[in-house]
Design a protein around this nucleic acid. Sequence first.
DNA 1: TGGCCTCCTACCCT
DNA 2: AAGGGTAGGAGGC
Length: 305
Amino acid sequence: MTVPEVLLCEATDINLDICLDKGGQSFTWIRISDHQWLNVINNKIVILVRANGKIYLQSSETDQDLLDHVKDYFRLDYDLRTMYHQWSSVDDHFKSLAPEYPAIRLLRQDPVETLFSFICSQNNAIPRITKMVQHLKVAYGEPLGEIHGVALYAFPNIERLAVETVERDLRDAGFGYRAKYIRDAARHLIDTGLDLHSLRKEPYLTVHERLVEIPGIGPKVADCIALMSLDQLGAVPVDTHIWQLACKQYRFSGLPKAKSSMNKTAYHAVGGHFREIFGDHAGWAHLVLFAAQSRARGSLRKTLS
DNA sequence: TGGCCTCCTACCCT
DNA sequence: AAGGGTAGGAGGC
């Protein structure tokens, strides 16, 4: 069988290594070689191939509709070079880091998948999160087929995750206390009838409020979901690292010294500060800083071992 | 009082 | 072995 292939963009348009593997945005991409990635987008199997300075899209049913979805997923309509210039011009720290981390794109992901993935992410590291999300798909998602010897699944729907026995099963599968959050969050979505997609049109604070009402979702996870799947490009997820960055690098005043005493006001103040510096798309800028930060930590570990 | 805040701890696992 | 977070309880205002 020949697999149709269409041109997606230039290789320099998307930093695939960071965006798909280690960026902490998506946990579902499977790297099958140095230059090939596998995933499901819009319930269709998708292969990304980097070759000849370009990125190609392969799929057994490549059509214009899927191509549009993939372009949308990578937000290729945003002129990222201009945005990098803009962010560099307003912040020296960004300016010094950016050349090493080009083409970091904010993925426009599915809200349901993003919500449950980031419930898994709390107090957790990427390899384990990846395993857990994979488990959700294998255990409760529709199989979509097999390619290059890899079986792929759709992300389960919320009805399936809301089943009574899910908590027990996930606990047995090693989800720990997150097992209950997942089942309860699914239950909440059904009971309240909250339509996640419709939140894309709402203002940031409304989106944040709706999300933190969901069991297992606090302010940080809410902002991850808002930023990465609900078009809230100004949402800044404040975790330990960004908190430290805010205190040390940006010397934000008026913040409590210890992270343990972070309250609602202080949490939102950090996001506000970043928005003052970087503007409406501060969450995207934060992603670049975040990538640089975690990369720095990784190499530090390497040199110590 | 109720409501809202702060502080503290437990939670699973690698 | 300390951690990329949240919930729930106690106690204060």
